[in-house]
Simulated assay, not measured.
Amino acid sequence: MNYNTIILNKIGAISTIIINRPKKLNALNKETIEELHDAFKEADSDKDTKVIIITGSGEKAFVAGADISEFSDFNASEGKMLAAKGQEQLFDFVENLSTPVIAAVNGFALGGGLELAMACHFRVASSNAKLGLPEVSLGLIPGYGGTQRLPQLVGKGRALEMIMTAGMIDAAKALNYGLVNHVVDQSELLPFCESIANKITQNSSVAIAAAINAVNANYKTCVNGFEVEIDGFGASFGTADFKEGTTAFLEKRKAEFPGN
């Protein structure tokens, strides 16, 4: 598939999505959100892709926010529809993908950019990264899941401080808060993410998908995460990956998971 605002590359079992609007600091507009949805869907549907990495083009920004010019004249109902459609089309979609998604946060991750990074399964930041949710400085609140995912990651107090001050935190503070898993130099960001991805690819993609589903269940209302875990654990015993994994362990060899 051809894209205008993103680049989708695949090397081995790793697909990398690059948001490619450097003149706009990779800001999210309607077209970019739609293309990201399609790219994630394409990569997730590829049985040979075991991990997806998402990053921004250049060294200045992962995503510096949403393209404000597209919604500055919206009314209340249009604003509500914008948030609802965006969450369904991209942010919730990414969070619930069965393929692991790593956000390689290079530079600014603000507003919708931080919300996209938080929707990924975990985050690695470059040492020059700046992260924040500045929406209240525009008379808005975060609309792509920021008020929900940020407290889950850093706690209620820190989340409210970040949201209410509309300020940015640097990579070191993001690491201290638990907002990112690792901080590395800019030049090492993608190689480091790829090294983690390569470790992931050695494991059962079926089991990983079930683990993602079980972990996410803990954050859903009216869902018992423990029951989801129990169901997923039991279902694992009926997979070819379980048979291969246990057989390889007993035979003291490296497992070659079939992915089913």
Rank of each mutant, 00 (worst) to 15 (best):
G113Q: 00
I19E: 07
L90F: 13
S57M: 07
K173R: 00
A211Y: 15
G167F: 01
K41Q: 13
D67M: 09
T201H: 11
N181R: 09
S77D: 09
A83D: 09
V124H: 09
L131I: 02
A109H: 02
E244Q: 13
V63E: 00
L250Y: 02
G245Q: 14
Y3R: 04
T221G: 11
N224H: 05
A119Y: 03
E188M: 15
Y219A: 14
F108W: 04
Q186K: 09
I68M: 05
A129S: 15
E34I: 11
T247H: 06
A171M: 00
G155R: 11
G259D: 11
V215E: 14
S204E: 03
A240W: 10
N198D: 13
I52W: 02
T5C: 11
E229S: 08
G86V: 03
S195V: 03
N4R: 08
K243P: 01
F192A: 05
G143Y: 10
A64G: 01
L140V: 06
K24V: 12
C120R: 00
H121R: 04
E135W: 03
V215C: 13
E227Y: 04
S45R: 11
H121V: 04
G232W: 03
I18V: 15
A240E: 09
V215D: 08
N20W: 07
K30S: 15
I19A: 12
N29P: 03
I196E: 11
G234C: 13
A235Q: 13
I11H: 08
G234W: 12
L140C: 09
E31R: 09
F233V: 07
A104V: 02
K60N: 00
S127F: 12
L160K: 07
N203I: 02
C222F: 14
I33E: 09
A76T: 02
F242Y: 11
T239G: 04
A13H: 08
A109Q: 05
K156G: 05
G155E: 08
N29H: 10
L189E: 04
T239P: 14
D73W: 04
K85E: 13
T201E: 15
D38K: 15
N75G: 01
A214C: 13
L250H: 01
F257G: 01
G58V: 03
E59H: 09
F242R: 03
E244W: 03
E135F: 01
N216E: 06
N29M: 05
S205C: 07
T239Q: 07
V124T: 03
E42Y: 06
E35H: 06
A211T: 10
L28V: 04
I196D: 08
M162A: 08
K130H: 03
I19W: 04
L110M: 03
A76V: 10
E70W: 01
L138T: 06
R123P: 02
V63A: 01
V101D: 13
L160D: 12
V136M: 12
L28N: 12
A172V: 06
Q148Y: 15
F257E: 06
I7D: 14
R253V: 07
G245A: 07
K41M: 05
M162R: 08
L189W: 10
